[in-house]
Amino acid sequence: MAAISYYASVLAIFACIYSIVTLGLNIQWGFSGILNFGVYAFVAIGAYTYALFTLGKPIPGASQTYILGLHLPFVVGLAAAAAAGGIVAWVLGAVALRRLRSDYLAITTIAFSQILWLIAGNETWLANGWDGVSGVPQPFNGLLKLSFNDYNFFFLGLSLVILVLVVWLAQLLLRAPFGRILRAVREDELVVESFGRNIASLKLRAFIIGAVLASIGGAMLAAYVGAFNPSAFLAGETFFVWAALLIGGSGNNWGAILGAVLVPVVFTEGTRFLPNIPSNPQLIEAFRYVIIGLLLILTLKFRPQGIIPERSDRFERAARRNRRLRSTPVPVDDAGEPPSA
């Protein structure tokens, strides 16, 4: 029994962390239509910053080399991680969001993520290179001195508190005028621009908020696992978050959370009964990614709004009707494609 509840608590902690990251992506893609393929770059920035702020000074001659090692408490580490993610997103977004169309932005964010990955791996002095940092202290356990099992539940509580705060913020954003303008930007940038709004600045703010949430998720990941290395932020991880958001339902926070809970559970539990083949240890893991890829395509094909669709209220429905009316006279050819601009 204890084993099962322990296992459930581990899954729940990962679900909380994934939810935070996915909610961040939802603000970028779901609210504002920003195609960020560098989600895990920000998770990594958060994780490394947290680790470097909370670890003690590196011992000369020991197996790890890294900078800082400030030995600061959890809350400071978390705040530093959030700040680092926000600052990097601000710089990247300020140069990239203003000029680039969506597909170029996607390529730029992947390229940025790859450069970061190469630096994290090759610069051993920075954060121990390819081996990564380990031994990141468990938050508050210096004071609490809980058993392994109890600490797990304590950490679950901590993750839930942070998740609730994040959900509250995301819901606030969804309903606020700012959130409405973001969705208007997603639907039609030209219209918002014609009302005198600065599109680049709106998108930049959404990008920064999303990146801060991803970094907080990264910090929680490093705090829980106690380690982080470059193999934890390959491109596959980013697409995992994307799959979670799109399957759960983008544009609404509950869809994002559902996806973040469902996709990893399906991922780890759905293949539980497959036999493990010793000659190919990656078989199960690979098989899971095949399933994620299939789910992603099937969702886009048969239920593009995701499991929980975005709530469209009276005004939005009216707006959609207007758009349909407006678009009727536009000639549409046999493939149903309007003429490209």
Binding site: L35, D103, A106, G236, F239, W242, L246, A286, F287, R288, Y289, V290, I292, G293, L294, L296, I297, L300, K301
Partner: peptide, 14 residues
């Protein structure tokens, strides 16, 4: 574009 990522995941992991 996003669905080609699904295709990529399937080929690569396959």
């Amino acid at each position: 574009l996003i669905s080609t990522i699904g295709v990529s995941l399937i080929i690569q992991s396959g």
